[in-house]
Design a protein around this nucleic acid. Structure first.
Length: 305
RNA sequence: GGUCAGAUAGCUCAGUUGGUAGAGCAGAGGACUGAAAAUCCUCGUGUCGGGGGUUCGACUCCCUCUCUGACCA
């Protein structure tokens, strides 16, 4: 069975087009690894490939409605299901996406403890955090699981809450994350990271945000709001959506909101680079040095296709 | 042309009685096991507009020039 070829990199670098071209070349399919493109109806702002834009089948996009609390564990289940099915048919798999955790969840031997994030426990801990403060909550974790408390910064409330949740499930956060830096592959996969000069990437991000606005991102957001885009939804946290909601509800000017979308996208790109740079398995392709077409040839050459 | 107020980090500005500067934002780096487009951590040397002077020592005081803004002609 052929190796899975994985395309990673920061937002707006050109992953989707390259992955599609590669999948066409291989006669395979693309499995998306993007935490926001899983939501239906969030198209323009997540830079989802438009219908007909991709020639190869694209999976793991539009899997749930925006009011569903999706997660890395659910993605792991769904992505592996899709990958196993493709492989059973002998279809080559190209994984492509910018959500580092989702890629690790699907392709590495990551195990999530039993349970769901839909419990009341999370809400209870969130409330507790608001009442007693971040440091006190961290103190509570220190009592219950000192090992985990030691590896989580007290201000990182989300992580502390999750660790407490895991205590309730009888699992140690610290124990779970052991070995995260030395991954054990679940599938045989190779990784290609696309990168380019920071200035140029940022210019592309800015231009893409302007293009999204021209394509009607505001109308898309209004449509979501009409159908009840609750403040507590994961999908609401997507860059480009939360800012335009702030505009629609009068908290921001439109220009201000657009500038904020650009800034947050740039920071997001930086975090993505940080994540992928840490993974020694990634072969980096500098798109300042080679064209996208040449990058495709490079990948095909080293994959023997 | 005159008067006044400014000119300090990429931007907005602090800088106490002269002892060669520091905040916010931007930016950079990093972490990351069920919210991950989330969340969190770390990082501040710059001809203090140019030139001259006073002084042991000037971002700070004096002179001068340049530029910007306001007002008066």
């Amino acid at each position: 069975m052929k190796r899975i070829v994985t395309i990673v990199g920061p937002t707006a670098v050109g992953k989707t087009a390259l992955a599609d071209a590669l999948a066409v070349r291989l006669g395979g399919a693309v499995v998306s690894a993007d935490a926001m493109q899983v939501y239906r109806g969030m198209d323009i702002g997540t830079a989802k490939a438009a219908p007909g834009e991709c020639r190869a089948p694209l999976l793991l996009v539009d899997v749930v409605d925006p009011d569903v609390a999706y997660s890395a564990a659910l993605y792991q289940r769904d992505a592996r299901c899709a990958i196993d099915q493709l492989r059973a048919q002998g279809t080559p798999v190209v994984v492509c996406g910018g959500t580092g955790l989702y890629i690790r969840a699907a392709l590495d031997d990551m195990r999530f403890p039993a349970g769901s994030q839909e419990t009341d426990a999370r809400r209870a801990y969130d409330d507790l955090a608001r009442r007693i403060g971040a440091d006190a909550l961290h103190g509570l974790l220190r009592e219950r699981d000192p090992e985990s408390a030691a590896v989580i910064h007290p201000h990182n409330v989300k992580r502390v809450v999750r660790a407490l949740e895991m205590c309730d499930e009888g699992v140690s956060y610290a124990r779970q994350k052991e070995g995260f830096s030395t991954p054990r592959p679940y599938y045989d996969a190779s990784y290609y990271g696309l990168t380019m000069d920071r200035e140029r990437l940022y210019a592309r991000i800015d231009a893409r945000v302007d293009a999204m606005m021209e394509q009607g991102l505001l109308a898309e957001v209004e449509e979501l709001v009409v159908h009840g885009f609750g403040a507590d939804l994961t999908a609401r946290q997507a860059i480009g959506y939360k800012e335009l909601i702030d505009y629609l509800e009068g908290r921001l000017g439109l220009d201000e909101a657009v500038d904020l979308i650009k800034m947050r996208s740039r920071r997001y790109a930086k975090r993505q680079l940080s994540w992928f740079r840490r993974d020694a398995r990634v072969h980096w392709i500098d798109l300042d040095a080679v064209s996208a077409d040449a990058a495709l040839e490079l990948i095909c050459e080293s994959e023997g296709c």
